[in-house]
Design a protein around this nucleic acid. Structure first.
Length: 489
RNA sequence: UCCAGAGUAGCUCAAUGGUAGAGCAGCCGGCUGUUAACCGGCUGGUUGCAGGUUCGAGUCCUGCCUCUGGAGCCA
C-alpha cells in the first residue's frame, strides 16, 4: 500500500489488489495515480476527448445482449446520465455475463470512445469487467417507470432511480446553496440544541426525550436532564440570543414535530433554516426572505440544470417557467388586512369564512398566490390574537409584525416576524399566553441587557425543495421520511 | 384526527355474484450497434387481514390494517 504514497486517497478497498499491481507493473509506478483513479461517470460523459484508459465503478441499470457482445448501462449516481458500455465476448470478466444483471455492481476498465450509435456522445469500450456484487431476480427496480408510492416502500433502493437520484443530488446542492447564501452575507452558522427544555410556543407538539421508565411524569426531576426535555421544534429562541451577540446568524438543522399531521407537506422530522438578524425590522426580514427564495430558484436553474430538466419533463411541466419567474420578478406584498379585503371582495366561494381576526386557511393562501397574484406573496401584519407571544406589537396596538411568504403549489414556505424587544411588552405577552416568565428567564434577559430590534424567519428546507423541484410529496424529498405511524429504514 | 378514494402476480392494471387474466419484469430459446430493443415459449396468486350474506364472493355487508388525495395543525 505504501507504493502509492500520497495517492492512497484514490485507493478503494473493493478494487482488487491484483488489478492495481498489474497496471503499476505495466506502466510504471509514476503512472499509478492515474491508473487506479476511478472516473466518475459525470466526468466521463463530459469529456472533451477520447481517453485510452478509464475505470468506472457503478451499478448496472440495464443490459442489452447482441451476438458476441452486450451493452451495459452503468450509473454511479454522480449525474443523471448513465454510461453505455460495450462488452465484447472474450474480455476478462465476460464469462460472468449471466451475473451482469440490473442492479449488480461492477468495475469496468476500458476506452472512452465516440459512440457510433445515436443517443449518446461517448461510450466505454470495455477491456476488462469485474463483477463486484451480484443482484438477483428479486431486484425491485425495473427499467419501466415506477410509482412514487411503490418507491417509498423501497426507500433504501430508490436513490438508484433516475428521479430520486436527481432529487437527492438537488437536495445536496441546495443545502450547499443555503450556506453559501448566508455565508456570503456574513451570517454566522449557529448549531442550536436538538434536545431542549423550552417550548417555542405555538410551534406544535413536541417529542419527549427521557430515560425514565414507567410513569415518566411522576418524578420528572429524576430524569436525565433533571427536568422534562424534548426534541426541538425550533431553534429560534436560542438563535435570538446569538443574533444579539453576533448580529446576523442562521441555523440549519433537524427539527421535530409530534403533530399527528398526515399530509403531503408535513413530516415529523425535517430540516429547518432559521436566520435571525439584530438591528433589523420586519421590512428587512421580508427583504431577506424574498431574496433567499429568489436566490435558491436561481441556484437551481444554474447549478442543477440537468436534474431540473428531468423534473420539468416528468414531474412538473411548468417548472422552468416558475423558477425563472420566481428568480426574476418581485414578490407581491400585502398586509393581512389587505389580504382579507381581497378575499372577501373577489367573489370566489371559500369553504371556510374569511374574516378579520381569523387565520387564513390553506384555500385562502392558495387563492392569493395561485389565483389572485399568480406569484409568491408576502402577507404581513397579522392580528396579535392569532400569533405567538414573541412577535412585536405594531403601533396600531392590534397587529404584530409577522410575515408569511406564500408560494404557488405549496402555500406557506416562510413564517417570520420582528421579535418583541421591549421588556414590559414581552412580559405582558407571556402573561397573556399563560406562560411562566421564569421558564423563559434567559430569553427575557435579552430584553434587559442591550436589547435591540431584531427579526428572523423559519423556512422548511423540504418545502423549499418541493417548490424548486415540483415534487409534490414531502416524503419524496427527504431520504427516509418520518411520519405518524412510519419510521421505517 | 376528520372527509373521500384505493388495496388482485415482483411492478402497472383488467375481470355482470359463476373456471382469476394481460402487459412489463424474471427464466429458456431466437435475432439484432442496441438504447423503455424486438420475436417465440415458460414460470408466476391464501385477490390487505378477520368475520358475515350466498348454492357460489376478487366482486355484496361489518370491523380492522395500510396507502393515496383533501382538510385541520404548521415549516
Amino acid at each position: 500500500m505504501r507504493l502509492f504514497g500520497a495517492n492512497i486517497g484514490f485507493w478503494q478497498p473493493w478494487f482488487k489488489i491484483g488489478n492495481v499491481i498489474r497496471e503499476a507493473k505495466l506502466h510504471g509506478k509514476e503512472n499509478a495515480k492515474i491508473l487506479i483513479m476511478r472516473t466518475l461517470i459525470k466526468h466521463a460523459l463530459a469529456s472533451a476527448e477520447p481517453k485510452d484508459l478509464v475505470i468506472i465503478k457503478g451499478w448496472i441499470r440495464t443490459r442489452r445482449d447482441s451476438k458476441g457482445f452486450s451493452f451495459l448501462e452503468i450509473n454511479d449516481g454522480s449525474c443523471l446520465g448513465s454510461l453505455q458500455t460495450v462488452v465484447n465476448s472474450g474480455i476478462p470478466g465476460y464469462d460472468q455475463l449471466h451475473h451482469l444483471t440490473t442492479g449488480a455492481s461492477v468495475i469496468i476498465k476500458g476506452k472512452l470512445v465516440a459512440s457510433p450509435g445515436s443517443g449518446q456522445k461517448w461510450e466505454l469500450a470495455a477491456t476488462e469487467i469485474e463483477l463486484v456484487g451480484t443482484s438477483d431476480a428479486a431486484y425491485p427496480l425495473q427499467k419501466k417507470g415506477h410509482t412514487m408510492e411503490f418507491l417509498r416502500t423501497i426507500a433504501h433502493l430508490r436513490p438508484r432511480s433516475n428521479l430520486f437520484g436527481a432529487i437527492f443530488r438537488t437536495r445536496s446542492r441546495l443545502a450547499y446553496a443555503v450556506h453559501q447564501f448566508f455565508q456570503e452575507r456574513d451570517f454566522v452558522y449557529v448549531h442550536t440544541p436538538i434536545i431542549t427544555a423550552s417550548d417555542c410556543e405555538g410551534a406544535g407538539e413536541m417529542f419527549r426525550v427521557t430515560t425514565l421508565k414507567g410513569n415518566i411524569d411522576e418524578k420528572p426531576e429524576a430524569d436525565f436532564f433533571g427536568r422534562r426535555s424534548y426534541l426541538t421544534v425550533s431553534g429560534q429562541l436560542e438563535g435570538e440570543t446569538f443574533a444579539c451577540a453576533l448580529s446576523n446568524i442562521y441555523t440549519f438543522g433537524p427539527t421535530f414535530r409530534a403533530e399527528n399531521s398526515n399530509t403531503a407537506r408535513h413530516a415529523a422530522e425535517f430540516w429547518m433554516i432559521e436566520p435571525e438578524m439584530a438591528f433589523c425590522d420586519l421590512a428587512g426580514d421580508m427583504d431577506l426572505g424574498e431574496q433567499f427564495v429568489k436566490a435558491m430558484a436561481q441556484y437551481a436553474l444554474e447549478h442543477c440544470a440537468e436534474d431540473v430538466g428531468l423534473f420539468a419533463k416528468f414531474v412538473d411541466k411548468g417548472l422552468h417557467d416558475r423558477l425563472r419567474f420566481v428568480a426574476e420578478r418581485p414578490f407581491q406584498r400585502v398586509t393581512y388586512t389587505e389580504a382579507v379585503g381581497i378575499l372577501t371582495s373577489c367573489g370566489h366561494k371559500f369553504e371556510f369564512p374569511v374574516q378579520y381576526g381569523l387565520n387564513l386557511q390553506s384555500e385562502h393562501e392558495r387563492y392569493l398566490t395561485e389565483e389572485h397574484f399568480k406569484c409568491p406573496v408576502t402577507v404581513y401584519n397579522y392580528p396579535r390574537e392569532i400569533k405567538p407571544f414573541y412577535m412585536r406589537l405594531n403601533d396600531d396596538g392590534k397587529t404584530v409584525a409577522a410575515m408569511d411568504v406564500l408560494v404557488p403549489g405549496i402555500g406557506e414556505v416562510i413564517g417570520g416576524s420582528q421579535r418583541e424587544e421591549r421588556l414590559e411588552l414581552l412580559n405582558e405577552n407571556l402573561r397573556r399566553h399563560n406562560l411562566r416568565p421564569e421558564d423563559y428567564w434567559w430569553y427575557v434577559d435579552l430584553r434587559r441587557f442591550g436589547s435591540v430590534p431584531h427579526a428572523g424567519f423559519g423556512l422548511g428546507f423540504e418545502r423549499l425543495i418541493m417548490f424548486l423541484t415540483g415534487v409534490s410529496n414531502i416524503r419524496d424529498v427527504i431520504p427516509f421520511a418520518r411520519t405518524p405511524g412510519s419510521a421505517d429504514f
